[in-house]
Simulated assay, not measured.
Amino acid sequence: MIIPWKDLPAATLDNLIESFVLREGTDYGEESFSLAEKVAQVRQQLERGDVVILYSELHESVTIAPKQTISATQDATEF
Rank of each mutant, 00 (worst) to 15 (best):
E30M: 13
F33Q: 08
T69M: 00
S56I: 04
S71C: 02
Q44I: 00
N15M: 08
S71D: 06
L58N: 12
G25W: 08
S32N: 09
S56K: 04
V52I: 07
T73F: 03
K38S: 05
S32C: 05
K38L: 09
E24G: 00
Y28M: 08
G49K: 12
L8D: 06
F20W: 13
V39G: 05
G49T: 11
N15L: 06
V51P: 04
Q45R: 13
L58W: 10
I53L: 01
G29N: 01
Q68M: 10
V51A: 06
A40Q: 12
P9W: 03
E57K: 07
A65S: 02
Y55E: 04
D50H: 07
E24L: 02
Y55K: 05
L13R: 13
L8T: 08
L54H: 03
D27A: 09
Q45T: 05
G25R: 08
P66R: 09
L22W: 00
L22H: 04
Q74M: 15
A65I: 10
L16Y: 02
Q41R: 12
E57W: 07
S61K: 14
G49V: 10
V51G: 02
E24D: 07
D27H: 11
L35D: 09
T69Y: 04
A10P: 09
V52E: 13
S19C: 05
Q45S: 11
S71E: 10
D7A: 01
G29R: 07
Q74P: 00
L13Q: 08
V42T: 00
L58P: 07
V62I: 10
G49D: 10
S19I: 04
L22C: 03
T26Q: 11
E47V: 14
F33S: 04
A72F: 06
P66F: 06
D27G: 09
E60T: 11
L54Y: 00
L16Q: 01
I53W: 03
D7C: 01
S61R: 15
I64S: 04
A36M: 11
V51F: 04
L13N: 02
G29I: 08
S34T: 15
S19A: 10
L22F: 05
D27L: 13
P9K: 03
P66G: 03
E37C: 06
R43K: 15
E24A: 07
Q74S: 11
R43T: 01
E60P: 01
R23D: 14
G25I: 09
I53Q: 01
R43P: 01
L13W: 09
S19F: 11
N15C: 07
T63R: 09
F20H: 15
H59G: 01
V39E: 02
T63H: 04
L35M: 12
R48V: 04
Q44P: 01
E31V: 15
V42H: 05
A10C: 01
S34F: 14
T26A: 14
Y55V: 03
V62L: 06
Q44E: 15
A65V: 10
L58R: 15
A40P: 08
V21F: 02
G25D: 09
A65T: 08
E18G: 12
S61I: 13
E47S: 14
K38F: 03
Q68T: 11
Q68N: 12
A10W: 04
